[in-house]
């Protein structure tokens, strides 16, 4: 217990000279507390401690105690009654700023996942923690499975540091390049001709048609003779 308490202090001394934003790569220390007894004014008890050494890389050291018998029973009761499991995380950043965040999940989901939970730490663009959320990876809510107490031993928490994306900008460069490529291709005559057959080959079609017309006009007797023959 003593070890866990001294760790943040130790880190604080080392890193306090560094700025907290992402460019200088800050760190953060998260003290986790949870509430296992549902009440109007929840009482939080210590759950563990997480140190994110590098916010940029998102590496975290997770220190959590195994659950005591009493805690196991309390958690099982919470799950059985379909209550909510709440954590309170106190984040101390490298610039000394302290923030407290709440997060709530369904206790039965936590029990069914056998205490395999995920902690999402969301940062803003400067690298300041804006929220800490506890999640359970599952494609559905509780299935009602019975979880033996032996499976509720210790939290296996994965920490995910989630950075803010850099917003997109209109991609004019590649569009202009594309237009230029097409222009060049056209100039080189590589562009595919998608005109209709008539538009493309009119210079061949028109003489043929004229030839046909002229030939049929030059030989009217044959045509008339044929017609007369059929009539008879």
């Amino acid at each position: 217990m003593l070890k866990i308490l001294t760790l943040p202090c130790f880190l604080f001394i080392i890193r306090s000279s560094l700025a907290s934003n992402l460019e200088h790569d800050g760190w953060a220390n998260i003290k986790l507390e949870h509430c296992l007894v549902p009440s109007a004014s929840p009482v939080f008890t210590e759950r563990g401690n997480i140190t994110i050494q590098s916010l940029r890389l998102g590496q975290a050291i997770v220190k959590q105690n195994p659950l005591t018998e009493q805690e196991k029973n309390q958690l099982r009761d919470l799950a059985a009654k379909n209550q909510f499991y709440q954590i309170r995380s106190t984040v101390v950043a490298s610039d000394g700023a302290e923030n407290t965040f709440l997060s709530t999940i369904k206790a039965c989901m936590l029990a069914e996942s056998e205490l395999d939970d995920k902690l999402s730490v969301s940062l803003d663009y400067t690298g300041r923690v804006i929220g800490v959320t506890l999640l359970i990876a599952s494609s559905s809510t509780c299935e009602g499975a019975f979880v033996p107490l032996s499976k509720l031993k210790q939290f296996t928490t994965h920490v995910y540091v989630r950075h803010s994306d850099v917003g997109p900008i209109p991609n004019t460069q590649s569009y202009i390049e594309k237009l230029e490529r097409e222009k060049e291709a056209r100039e080189r005559g590589e562009v595919k001709d998608n005109r209709s057959i008539l538009a493309k080959y009119w210079m061949y079609i028109v003489p043929v048609v004229i030839l046909l017309m002229v030939s049929s006009m030059a030989n009217p007797e044959a045509a008339a003779g044929n017609g007369g023959g059929a009539g008879r």
Partner: peptide, 17 residues
């Protein structure tokens, strides 16, 4: 800054700046 936040869990689904 634009955030997409889940109103039930408070999970920041997406954020951009």
């Amino acid at each position: 800054n634009v955030f997409l936040v889940d109103g039930v869990t408070g999970f920041v689904v997406y954020s951009t700046s």
